[in-house]
Write a protein that binds this DNA or RNA. Structure first.
Lengths: 332, 332
DNA sequence: CTGAAAGCGCTAACAA
DNA sequence: TTGTTAGCGCTTTCAG
């Protein structure tokens, strides 16, 4: 069964296909009676314009590519939701790509993206570096990067200043004289981990001290919990910081195992949390990174890039703000 | 800057575009030297075939639509991962759509899907009913449904038999004489809740009893936890069943609040769990629904539908198996 | 206000 | 083995 085309509608309505095209694109030069004839035909035949053909003719597909890491973290879902919701408003479709270790790398994804002629691409991948964008750039596809601040032509970024967040947090503890602070590595988010580290180091520096609390997981370690269970037998801290709430919970579970009470003897904070944080006991104090907004703002930014007048300038990075929420894993 | 087309390559290599087309599509009728000239030209110009134009010419886009619910549940992420991984193997791209209450409904998504001329669509939406598929059917787009068993032409489904799982579970308890069993409503997954209920009812029936343990949240209740905290003041059970691990934790937290110890005084089981279940204390005994596999198998099924010979028969639904894993929230 | 025709980039007969 | 040409479904000048 062949799909009904613009020709079928034209024949049915006794007009040329040009007129049908005008009607479905809302041109206002078409006379009312003609328009009605066309609309009836469209309705009668159940005609839906073929986006592929439109894409060819217009040289734009009104779809944008979205790249996310394999890991189905909860916040990745949030980002996708935010992005799709605003994409919907602007009538963009989303082509989803993932980077799965052992199955897909960024190069092969970029290849697919170029072929598919999306109008732009939003990338959320902590492992992304500036030079990975070279190919995309060569085919001048507009790019929005989530999470990393990346400087390049035709590339915008939307992120949260985690370095600053941690700096402020650590400063507060240092000023209270609590300087035994540890930061747990997150292998899945190496870049974010670096930001966190940098924030902590700056804080220590400004107090004339040196930060030594970075806890890199030894190679071979499978889970943070497995590592921490032993580590905490011989180490004590005032504060431990994890990136995700699940890591914070690993810390807390390991602490419990060693009879370290949280928050009384040790406080725990994480950066990103999920709805599971409302279920956990204790609930973890955290910076509430607005994942949904990261997605939504990125897409909004993308639409702006796509309709920019060449001459018009626009900001090429947006810093979203965070909010620290104190819960049961810290003292106040 | 115009993108390089097949014409450019043809000119550069001094052949016709037909030959270029043959080379990029791996036809083996092209002579080696010619092939090389073309390949060099492709390389030199950085030519990538335009999938849109191919789509128009071939009447197939090698992309499939994926519809998921708004809720960024962890298992939705799993499903997406599974689906994309096998899509990648078969060189399919994924167009992602979400059903967001207040933003998008199934109808508008279906509209987009039809226009985009995807080769098929995979739908994971607990609220989906058979008649929702009417439009998709009218434009005869192959459909795979995840989670629900739906009977319709050109529709396949991949699911887990939760009814049976619960039946077996409840039977086991009934045989041990534990018949105070409650099942917590999951508003986000009404269909799954029904399946669970059915399983429990059957078990009770087969014992000549009537099941009365269905716990529907009163309208106005915002969280299961809020409801259960009070409810458990006046109700005692041998076993409580929640759909997701987060609900099971709500049950456990509410039980704690009422000094009901788990699993000693009350046991708790959930159907779907996430990685957070490994972090929680107690860990919840659960059926491990293979979310990743649900996605992967669906996509595999889709590829089969798309290459089916009209005459060749195939099964139109696949039941995936589950595995009950006993953890700290049950006695053995 | 409407129609005719060229073109978007590619594929697939059909010829040569 | 390679080239020519007619579509695929739609948009958009340019005439009328």
């Amino acid at each position: 069964m062949k799909r009904v085309t613009i020709y079928d509608v034209a024949r049915e309505a006794n007009v040329s296909l040009a007129t049908v095209s005008r009607v479905i694109n809302g041109s206002n030069v078409v006379k009312a009676p003609t328009r009605e004839r066309v609309e009836n035909a469209v309705e009668k035949l159940g005609y839906k314009p073929n986006a592929i053909a439109q894409g060819l003719a217009l040289q734009k597909t009104t779809t944008i590519g979205l790249v996310v890491p394999e890991a189905s973290f909860t916040y990745t879902g949030q980002i996708i939701n935010g992005l799709i919701d605003v994409a919907k408003i602007y009538n963009y479709n989303i082509m989803l790509h993932t980077i799965t270790e052992g199955i897909t790398d960024l190069n092969s994804v970029v290849e697919d993206i170029i072929k598919s002629h999306v109008d732009g691409v939003v990338i959320f991948d902590d492992k992304l570096r500036a030079n990975d964008m070279a190919t995309l750039n060569r085919y001048n596809i507009p790019v929005v990067v989530i999470g990393n601040k990346i400087e390049a032509k035709d590339v915008c970024s939307v992120y949260v200043n985690i370095e600053k967040a941690i700096y402020e947090l650590v400063m507060k503890y240092l000023e209270e004289g609590k300087d035994k602070i540890a930061i747990l590595e997150d292998r899945k988010n190496p870049q974010q981990y670096q930001y966190i580290l940098k924030g902590a180091k700056k804080a220590y520096e400004s107090k004339g001290k040196e930060f030594k609390g970075q806890l890199n997981l030894p190679t071979g370690t499978r889970t943070s919990y497995g590592f921490l269970k032993d580590w905490l037998k011989t180490h004590r801290y005032d504060l431990m910081v994890g990136y995700r709430d699940s890591q914070a919970m690993a810390i807390i579970n390991a602490a419990r195992e060693n009879d370290i009470s949280v928050p009384e003897e040790m406080e725990v904070v994480c950066v990103l949390d999920t709805k599971y944080n409302t279920i956990m006991r204790p609930q973890v104090s955290s910076f509430s990174i607005p994942s949904y907004d990261l997605g939504a703002v990125s897409m909004r930014m993308m639409t702006k890039m796509l309709q920019k007048d060449e001459n018009e300038d626009r900001e090429d990075s947006i810093e979203l703000s965070y909010l620290f929420t104190s819960r049961q894993s810290t003292k106040e």
